[in-house]
Design a protein around this nucleic acid. Structure first.
Lengths: 130, 130
DNA sequence: TCTAAATTTGTAATCATTACAATTTTATAA
DNA sequence: TTATAAAATTGTAATGATTACAAATTTAGA
């Protein structure tokens, strides 16, 4: 993945901060919170501000290269994988994993009344390590 | 629905506040926020405190008669309908609707690695009124 | 009725997020 | 290269939802 091209292709000027934040999201795939992103990246970029992390993530979301994961009501996580997938959170270890899924198999009733544009599927339970 | 029995059957002492809050959730089915619940009920119960609304909802959740709806990352909503269903939020009017769904039709790949206990499905788009 | 336990309430504290202005960096044109 | 404007980043303060906690009230049982 060429992060600079990816940002540029999505109308985002590739500053150092933006490249690093996207790279972190894309490479780690752990659906981190703002605090986690900030804590990890401030080691690389000592001047980094948490406001920049917020601003940048909002920019990414507005330009369609990042999505929020709201699997818990008290923490917002971020995800740079935009292909169709669900999320599973282990109640024991707290990790959030990607789950491949075929949303087209979902059968709704009375769904004709709505024009669905986005679908989010969140699963919880216990992972095989716990 | 006999709210007093429902609370009692779930080990919740049926105080006036608890009955009214559950009744509001169950009858309105609009997936309200804490503020909405408080604003509406304080007309009936002038002494009502927002802390009581928070405490009571937490009690309901712990005892399995209420669930949170985290379809947006900046607002927590509450739902007293515990039967399997998905939620649809209209991006235009902001209303959240229940959607009947058969979760058993969902086909996961590699899901064997996880023991799924709860499933939440959130849809967004445009409703037929907007 | 009396006492203890449970519930409710109001206030203060906490924490994530946003607003905003100042600073720094980048891009452009002379 | 230098000057200037625009964009991006930063730090601090403000906001708003939620929680902590102690006081007040209500309920239940002896």
């Amino acid at each position: 993945m060429d992060f600079v091209s990816h940002l540029t292709n999505n109308n985002i000027k590739p500053s150092l901060q933006r490249i690093k934040i996207f790279e972190y999201l894309y490479d780690n795939r752990k659906h981190p919170t703002v605090d986690t992103i900030y804590s990890n990246l401030v080691e690389d970029i000592p001047t980094l501000s948490k406001t920049t992390v917020y601003n940048t993530l909002k920019l990414f979301i507005d330009n369609g290269i990042t999505a929020t994961v709201t699997i818990e009501d008290n923490e917002v996580r971020y995800d740079a994988i935009m292909e169709e997938h669900a999320h599973f959170k282990c109640d024991t270890c707290g990790n959030v994993y990607d789950v491949e899924i075929d949303i087209s198999t979902l059968k709704f009733k009375k769904i004709k009344a709505f024009k669905v544009e986005t679908t989010n599927i969140y699963l919880k339970g216990k992972c095989n390590k716990c």
